[in-house]
């Protein structure tokens, strides 16, 4: 018994990437990206490819430096993040309660559930033409709509699935201790479906990010330029360093947001459930 406990403890620590393992991971990643960037830069300087089509890392970072100097990049990041956070929040705040409804009521499952399943398969960029027409004088509304369409269905379906897969024994055990109604929902059903909620929220985040970039590239705008617009203008100006730089920024923001938003939840799931999402 003691042996197995110690083993579990070790597995949990290793899984959490504590200490040594974490350093190894960081060093390996830094060396890998350093070598790739170095080879890329060397190739560009040696003239192995056209620097206009494939800008060198130094060109990309020069553009980033200039754009930061002008404040252009910060303001684009801010505008994009504002839209993203707002749309994502709306998607989550609608998706979780609607998912609870479809999990609880057969009627909701047969109607809204089927609708969600259908719209989930539709890439949200497909909403761009219609939303431009619907919100023609309100581009922010159009983009919000597209982001919400990207987030909502994934979150709804994950919530629905999460609630349905709860072992019935949890509900029964909670009932014998006097838990019912809102207490049952808040203290048992939602936490019990947490692994699914987190993976749904993560998927929703990824969809929201993709949809927003598509929306910003396509929707003509007068209410503030986001990263998608910078990308679009870069293409129109044939400024590939700008395009590549904005792509890099999009990657970095997506990566950082993923870590900042979901790592705490994933750590919690690993510590308590002993599982990885």
């Amino acid at each position: 018994m003691k042996g197995s406990l110690t083993n579990t403890g070790a597995a949990v620590r290793a899984g959490a990437g504590g200490g040594r393992d974490a350093w190894v991971a960081v060093v390996q990643a830094v060396v890998f990206f350093g070598v790739v960037a170095g080879a890329w830069e060397a190739g560009s300087r040696a003239g192995w490819w056209n620097p206009v089509l494939i800008p060198s890392p130094s060109d990309i970072f020069r553009y980033i430096g200039e754009a930061l100097g002008k404040g252009e990049l910060q303001s684009a990041c801010y505008v994009t993040m504002r839209r993203l956070v707002f749309g994502y929040a709306v998607g989550i705040l609608l998706g979780i309660p609607l998912g609870l409804l479809t999990a609880r009521f057969r009627f909701a499952a047969n109607t809204l559930g089927v609708l969600a399943l259908g719209l989930q398969t539709l890439p949200s960029v497909c909403w761009v033409p219609l939303s431009i027409l619907w919100f023609h004088s309100n581009p922010e509304g159009a983009m919000l709509f597209i982001v919400v369409m990207g987030t909502l269905w994934a979150v709804l379906l994950a919530t629905d699935h999460g609630i349905r897969q709860i072992p019935p024994i949890y509900r029964r055990a909670a009932a014998t201790m006097g838990s019912k109604g809102f207490h049952l929902l808040w203290r048992v059903l939602l936490p019990a479906s947490l692994p699914h909620l987190v993976s749904g929220a993560k998927q929703g985040w990824a969809f929201a990010w993709r949809s927003l970039m598509a929306a910003e590239i396509y929707v003509a705008i007068s209410t503030g330029y986001g990263l998608g617009h910078l990308l679009h203008f870069g293409r129109e100006l044939h400024a590939m360093d700008q395009v590549a730089a904005v792509m890099l920024v999009i990657i970095v923001i997506g990566f950082a947001a993923d870590k900042a938003l979901f790592s705490p939840w994933e750590r919690f799931l690993r510590r308590r459930w002993g599982l990885t999402v």
């Binding site: 014998t176 201790m177 207490h183």
Partner: peptide, 30 residues
Amino acid sequence: PGRQRGVMFQEHALFPWLDVTQNVLFGLNL
């Protein structure tokens, strides 16, 4: 069901999102 009659099942039915103490506290909190 009610807290005058405690139940133990064949499966432990403990809540994985709570630690050991919090599991024991679940019924007490109600």
